[in-house]
Amino acid sequence: MNATAVDKWSSGTSPFNVTWGKLMMWLFLVSDAFTFGALLISYASIRASAESWPNPEEVFSAFPFIHAKIPLGFVSLMTFILIASSVTMVLAVRAGALKNRQGVVKYLGLTIIGGLIFLASQAWEWTHLIMEGMTISSNPWGPPQFGQFFFLITGFHGAHVLSGVILNLIVLIKALNGDFDRSGSYQVVENVGLYWHFVDLVWVFVFLAYYLISA
């Protein structure tokens, strides 16, 4: 379709018609899907072998600044924040494709803010649960493995959100510098966008495995 893609593959037509960076990002995401898959499936395996398991609606019912118990209220809010930041990321990628620097800066900035709010929410939730006595070695609601896997999986996901925020920040600074206008390609925005959506995708499955499934 375009000349550069043909050059890169040195043949008549490109099988993927994507840039090198984007292809490598997809390959990385496939491998990362298996990393998260391994964590979630080992969690499922331990859970299947346990005699009892805590009811997530009971464990995750606290909400900051409000003393009422809202089952799953806070994590649902965190989910919506992540979905909203995914939407702003799509808009940033779209602005990048249209070579609209102001749009990229605006929407990437909103995405970073969304990611930071999510991280802050997770920090609050962790603090709250540790105060309640749930650590990697103890769990007042049942088997300690619940706490171990909770901190392992949400921590690993949180580390992904943090690195996503840092990557977005780097791209934002480069966009502000006008690097992409000079090179004429906003491809990097799309690559970090893929990573950010993947983080959102993983959260959908963490949400299912940890907060929703009850049997």
């Binding site: 099988p15 995708l201 929703l212």
Partner: peptide, 23 residues
């Protein structure tokens, strides 16, 4: 429902639906 959400994120947000079939 989770698989439905995953489909929409991957197909639309990650734009995979519009890529070439080999990818």
């Amino acid at each position: 429902f989770t698989l439905v959400k995953a489909y929409f994120i991957v197909a639309e947000f990650m734009h995979l639906k519009y890529e070439l079939r080999p990818l």
